[in-house]
């Protein structure tokens, strides 16, 4: 997409900076969504029987991921994403004033 004409008022280098920022964002999103998928769909549904062989206190592990663990990970994921994006915003100089 770097060959596209930059939006009005942007130089080529500013445009390049925006494209790099977007690529870094997409990489972060892909990582976070992989974890999102693993804890809920993989651990909570697909591998639930296998994980239930392991126990976590009185919980079977697969059951715990489905009814507790996945939700805790979701919360941490969103804050992690927000924290990393704030850093990316600053690094690429695209943060709000």
């Amino acid at each position: 997409m770097a060959l596209d004409t930059p939006p009005l008022g942007l130089t080529m280098s500013e445009n390049k900076n925006r494209q790099d920022y977007w690529k870094a964002n997409l990489r972060l999103v892909a990582w976070c969504l992989s974890i999102w998928f693993v804890v809920s769909y993989l651990f909570g549904i697909i591998l639930v029987d296998q994980l239930n062989a392991i126990s976590l206190g009185g919980y079977e592990l697969g059951f715990w991921f489905a009814q507790q663990g996945s939700m805790y990970v979701f919360v941490v994921l969103i804050f992690f994403y927000a924290y990393r994006m704030n850093k990316l915003d600053k690094k690429f100089g695209v943060h709000e004033d």
Binding site: P7, W22, N25
Partner: peptide, 8 residues
């Protein structure tokens, strides 16, 4: 492209 960056 504009909504993809927070600035502005």
């Amino acid at each position: 492209e504009d909504i993809r960056v927070p600035k502005g």
